[in-house]
Design a protein around this nucleic acid. Sequence first.
DNA 1: ATTAAATGTCTCGAATTCGAAATAAATGAG
DNA 2: CTCATTTATTTCGAATTCGAGACATTTAAT
Lengths: 151, 151
Amino acid sequence: MNNSGEYNRDSDLSLKLLVVLTRALESIEKQIVKNIKSYKLNLTEFAVLEVLFHKGDMPIQKIGQKILLATSSITYVVDKLENKNYVKRVASPTDRRVIHATITKEGKALMAEIFPKHKDALTEIMGGVDVSEKEWLVEHLKRLGLHAKNL
Amino acid sequence: MNNSGEYNRDSDLSLKLLVVLTRALESIEKQIVKNIKSYKLNLTEFAVLEVLFHKGDMPIQKIGQKILLATSSITYVVDKLENKNYVKRVASPTDRRVIHATITKEGKALMAEIFPKHKDALTEIMGGVDVSEKEWLVEHLKRLGLHAKNL
DNA sequence: ATTAAATGTCTCGAATTCGAAATAAATGAG
DNA sequence: CTCATTTATTTCGAATTCGAGACATTTAAT
């Protein structure tokens, strides 16, 4: 292995894999955006609500780690969600630097309506591969991502 | 199949797959950005140069299709690359609405230096899975993406 | 040939994201 | 305890992206 032939094959496949990975995610995200647009939410707002809906209160910074966004961007998104009354800020009782974002009653009601639909829609969107292929994909994309992250 | 148990498994896997897909691409892109930053290029500028370097002249709009960006965004990126003398605009001889972007001598020289390094680096970055796994990933991500696109 | 519809590019304003700097609070070293 | 360092959030300015509208040109229909 790692002779010139193998090596070029690996390189070419890596280039190709980057392209298909990018295109697949692009297509999937476009479909999701289409589905949540009627609720006047963009992908980031939806992601924040989803995290709070399922995991409960969370400091601003931790939300950023969950959804892969800079802390300053979370400030911006939480501002928007607060204006829409889906989220409110609550000071941490134990650490006065920390602000927790909490989902409101309205936010919960919205997500209770949207999330099941989103889940069903996503299952449709991901219908190009079957259950066992998804398992394989999850496992190997996890490896791919972890290796890339820890370089 | 498609009894309630299977269905929920499929849904949960679909949600999970979206997360790992997003994280994997995020980690990979961050590594690429790190590698090309020393040449003062961002991912989009690099992508445009790469396309022109390998496919030759191309109308503004077609570049947008290749790298999945709105035409107005390509205008912006080509402006930047033109200011850096890596690209120039050439009117189409056959259709006076069309502008071709062409890579300059300087652009070619830059890419001749960067691209092989990028290719090697990407092969490293993608080292979390082996060649046959990459083949499988390419095939199935293509299916996944096409199905999502054509919904 | 004339008109209507479609296409390609650019401009503009709005939205989103980032990173650096500012501020406030907590932690650690001595 | 006190000072320096670290951590959490926000603010600010810059960069990037999109979509709608403007404009010029081409294509299609009659």
